Computed example of a mutant assay.
Amino acid sequence: MAYMQYLVFNGNNLPLPDSYSVDLADVEADTGGETEAGTTQRDVVRSGVVTISVSFSVSPNWLKKLTAYSKMAKITVQYFDTETLELKETEMYISGFKAALKKDTSYKGLWTVSFTLNEM
């Protein structure tokens, strides 16, 4: 049985994630806030900015690939959009990259990798 493809970096399919969380947020201008009448005024500059938190259990080979992606200034990412239930493409960068040894094996271990993808 084939699994759903959740992430594609620069045309390369990533393995199935252990966790995958999509957050959509609005970017507001500094001119918004509360008025003298006590109502809230929002000056939305950009809506639906995507942030994805993801974690993987990977081999040393994938650890090396994901570490290389984390050092790139931007990545072309296709991600599983929870609104359309299809892959959507955008440019993103990685922040909060963490790698931890999950289990020591004879071949350099099994690794847990987690990071956040931020839309540019």
Rank of each mutant, 00 (worst) to 15 (best):
G109S: 02
K65R: 08
A68H: 08
S59T: 12
G38C: 08
A2L: 15
G11H: 03
N13W: 00
V8N: 07
S95P: 02
K108P: 03
T51F: 01
Q41Y: 11
Y69E: 12
S47E: 10
K88V: 02
E89Y: 01
S59F: 02
Y107P: 03
V58W: 11
T35E: 09
N118I: 11
L87F: 01
P17L: 12
D104S: 14
S106K: 08
G33M: 06
N118H: 13
S59E: 09
T116H: 05
T67R: 12
D30S: 13
E86L: 14
M92H: 03
T31N: 04
S57P: 08
M1S: 14
T116V: 13
M92V: 06
R42C: 11
S57W: 13
N10C: 06
V54H: 07
V8K: 11
Q5V: 15
M1F: 07
P15I: 01
M72T: 04
V27K: 15
K65Y: 10
K71F: 08
E86T: 14
T76E: 15
A73H: 09
K64L: 14
L117K: 05
W111N: 01
D26A: 04
L16R: 04
L66E: 13
S114Q: 05
P17D: 08
E28L: 02
K65M: 11
G11V: 02
M4I: 14
D18Y: 14
V50Y: 10
L7S: 03
Y20I: 08
G32E: 01
S70G: 12
N61E: 15
R42N: 15
R42H: 15
S19M: 12
N10W: 05
D26Y: 00
S55G: 07
Y107V: 06
A100E: 15
A73C: 07
P60Y: 01
T76K: 15
K74R: 13
A37M: 14
F97A: 08
G48L: 04
T67Q: 14
A2E: 13
G109I: 00
P60G: 02
T105S: 09
V8F: 07
Y3W: 11
N61A: 15
L110R: 02
Y93K: 10
V50S: 10
D104Y: 09
S19V: 06
